[in-house]
Computed example of a mutant assay.
Amino acid sequence: MSRTIQVGLIGFGLSGRYFHAPFLTVNPYFKLAKVVERHRNDAQAFDPAIQTVRSHEDLLSDPAIDLVIVGSPNDTHYPYAKAALEADKHVLIEKPFANTSEQARELLDLATAKGLVAIPYQNRRYDADFLTIQQLLEQHKLGDVVEYEAHFDRYRPDVLNSWKELDPEGGGNLLNLGPHLIDQAVLLFGVPDAVFAEVRTVRPGGVLDDYFDIRLFYPNKRVILKSNMLAADNSLRYVIHGTKGSFVKHGLDIQEETQRKNILPNTPDWGQEPESQYGTLTTPEGKQTIPSRRGNYHHFYDNLYRAIVGESGPEVTAEQAYTTIRIMELALESSRTGRGLKFERGRPAV
C-alpha cells in the first residue's frame, strides 16, 4: 500500500451508510474523513472520527481530500461530480452516473482532461449470482447464449414520500434499478444493436415509472431486463438459455441485507449465499445445483484504489458508463414512441 486515499462523502442516506461507509471502514486503502450532511450527524454516530460538514463547497475546498463519493439524490450527481472534478478530486458516483448521456460524456471528458478517475458505483457486478453467471459463461457451461433475462423486482404497492418516487428530475424505477441490470448486460455482451422498451407506471397513485421491460438486440441473442414494483413473487433473478443448457437463479444477493443489520463486511463468510438460493443448471444430461460464488463488493473498492494510484484501469470503463446511460435514454424514447431504436455505435469522446 503506497498511500491512503482520503475520502469525502456527499450524503449519508442508504447509499452512504450501508454501501460505502462500512466498506471504507474495513479497507486499509481508504479513510473516510468527511461527510456532507445538511442537518443531521448520522456519520459521526457511525464513526466519531468522521468530520461532518454542511455543504459540498466545504468538502471540496479541503486539499487533503483525494476522492469524493457522490451519494446524494440523482439530480445532484452531475453538478456535484463536475464540481469535484474541477476541484481536482477523483469521483465515485452512485448510480445513475448521470441523468443524461450528454452529462455523462461531459464528466468523462473532464476527468480524462484532468487525469482523474470518474466512475459509477456498479456494485451489482459483484453480487453472488452475477459472479456465478460469469463463471458459468467463462466455463462455457451454457454454450452460446441465445436468450438472457434478468429481473430486479420488488413489492412496494404504496408510493413512498421520497425523491426516488416523486422527483421528475431524478426519480423513477428506471434510473434507480435500471443501471444495475443494464450495466451487467453491457459487461457480458457489449453494446447492443438496438433497444426496444416499455417504461410505465403500474401502481395506483404512482407519479413516476415503477415498471420497465427493456429488450436489447444483438446479432445472435436477445437480452430482456425487467423490473416491477408490484411483483409479490419477486424471487426470480435470472433465466439464461444457451446452446448447451439453461440456468435459472432465484434470490437476491445477501450483502445489502447483511449490511442493514449493522454487520461490518469483514466477517469470514461475507457474501456467502445460503444453499436455498443456489441456481439450477439444466442440460440434456439432467439438472445440477450450482453453488453460488461468494458476493464481494470489496473487489470494487480495491479496483478503485488501483485506478486512483495508477496501478490499473477502472473495471467499469468510460464506454460502459456512457453506454448504460444512453441505453436508458433510448428505452424512454422507445417506450414513448413504441418503436425499436438503433444504438448508434461509437465510443464517448474521452
Results as ranks from 00 to 15, higher is better:
Tyr322His: 15
Ser335Leu: 07
Asn303Pro: 04
Leu330Glu: 05
Glu333Thr: 13
Glu333Ile: 08
Gly310Ser: 10
Ala318Glu: 12
Thr323Glu: 15
Thr267Leu: 09
Gln320Ile: 05
Pro314His: 14
Glu333Pro: 01
Ser334Gly: 09
Pro265Gln: 03
Gln272Asn: 08
Val316Asn: 09
Ala331Cys: 07
Ile325Asn: 01
Ala318Pro: 13
Ile327Tyr: 04
Gln259Met: 06
Trp270Pro: 00
Thr280Asn: 07
Lys342Asn: 08
Arg306Met: 13
Glu311Gln: 15
Asp269Met: 04
Thr258Leu: 02
Leu332Val: 10
Ser335Gly: 15
Thr267Met: 06
Leu330Thr: 03
Glu311Thr: 12
Asn262Trp: 02
Tyr278Arg: 06
Pro268Tyr: 10
Thr283Ala: 14
Glu319Ala: 15
Leu304Phe: 13
Gly310Asn: 09
Leu330His: 07
Lys261Asn: 01
Pro274Lys: 11
Ser312Gly: 05
Gln288Tyr: 08
Tyr322Thr: 05
Arg326Phe: 11
Glu344Ile: 13
Ala307Ser: 12
Glu319Met: 08
Ile327Pro: 01
Leu264Arg: 00
Gly271Leu: 02
Ala331Trp: 03
Val309Asp: 06
Gly313Lys: 13
Tyr278Phe: 15
Leu304Trp: 09
Lys287Ser: 13
Val316Leu: 10
Ala307Arg: 07
Lys287Gln: 14
Phe343Pro: 01
Glu315Pro: 02
Leu264Gln: 02
Pro291Asn: 05
Thr317Ser: 15
Arg326Trp: 04
Gln288Phe: 09
Arg345Met: 15
Ala307Tyr: 05
Glu285Gly: 08
Ala321Phe: 09
Tyr301Ile: 08
Pro284Asp: 08
Pro265Ala: 02
Ser276Met: 08
Lys342Tyr: 10
Gly271Thr: 01
Pro291Trp: 04
Ser312Lys: 07
Tyr322Met: 13
Tyr322Gly: 02
Pro284Ile: 11
Gln272Lys: 13
Ser334Ile: 07
Tyr301Gln: 06
Gln277Pro: 00
Gln259Ser: 06
Phe300Thr: 03
